[in-house]
Design a protein around this nucleic acid. Structure first.
Lengths: 130, 130
DNA sequence: GCCAAAATTAGGAATCATTCCTAATTTTAA
DNA sequence: TTAAAATTAGGAATGATTCCTAATTTTGGC
């Protein structure tokens, strides 16, 4: 129910070697660019399908962006994201929110269960601040 | 450059009197339902345009949902959101993240500026957990 | 109140990201 | 080697949202 696939391997490789949290479209373009003109390149739907499978298997993380397409991040170790609410740029930062005593407030006010192991915060990047 | 509009008033009213963080479509339907059959109802594009204006003026908050349309929340006082990563349900909780000593980690790892006054965390609601 | 300029509206077309569909190809494991 | 199972390319379909335009509403000055 899950076979090897060269395309999936290559998609993961793009994410591993990128620090820009690329969109599905950017991954699609990167793969196309790395192919010689002769051989045919990975299709858009294959990119989406495999990103979904990789996310399912917790190998990558998908990040929803307020105004724009989702972005993807190779998930080597737990970390958080700040995302620019103006331009959508994503940056990583390390902080263990599990240490924060916020679970009480959450369980008191909601019926939700949270893990706090990868939190996304909105911000403004320095170039958009100008 | 910003005139009064009955439609904008009504959209805000729907949000004020709702605790479900409705989508644009749900607001559109609520408005349609509250109109008598004779009078014509607010159009979808008007709903979207006014939600944008209200967000711009910080009267409401827009919440991006991982798999599904954006949701909207009347913003009376600062609070945070937990959002079910399975079904997209949104719940409010109160906690002042400005007290958390995380700014150092963020400024060290990124060039982003954050306010920490309204943070959205992913979780799993009790009915999806089953 | 009356009027013209400015802002807003309804409604539908257009756009963008993403998912779905299908026949052809690739992978697997016996 | 082979057939069943999984995956692919490519394009059609979908869903959310934005854009466009002519008609209507709001506004501020008279």
């Amino acid at each position: 129910m899950k076979n090897y696939s060269k395309q999936r391997e290559e998609i993961l490789e793009v994410l591993k070697s990128s620090c820009t949290h690329p969109t599905a479209e950017e991954i699609y373009i990167a793969l196309k660019a790395s192919k010689k003109a002769s051989s045919k390149s990975t299709s858009r739907s294959t990119v989406y399908r495999n990103l979904g499978m990789l996310e399912e298997g917790s190998e990558i993380k998908r990040i929803s962006v307020h105004d724009g397409p989702d972005r993807y991040d190779y998930f080597k170790k737990p970390h958080n994201h700040v995302i620019c609410k103006i331009c959508g740029k994503v940056a990583d930062f390390e902080y263990d929110f599990r240490a924060v005593q916020v679970m009480d407030a959450i369980s008191e006010d909601t019926d939700m269960e949270v893990t706090m192991d990868s939190i996304t915060i909105e911000g403004t990047c320095s170039s958009c601040k100008r």
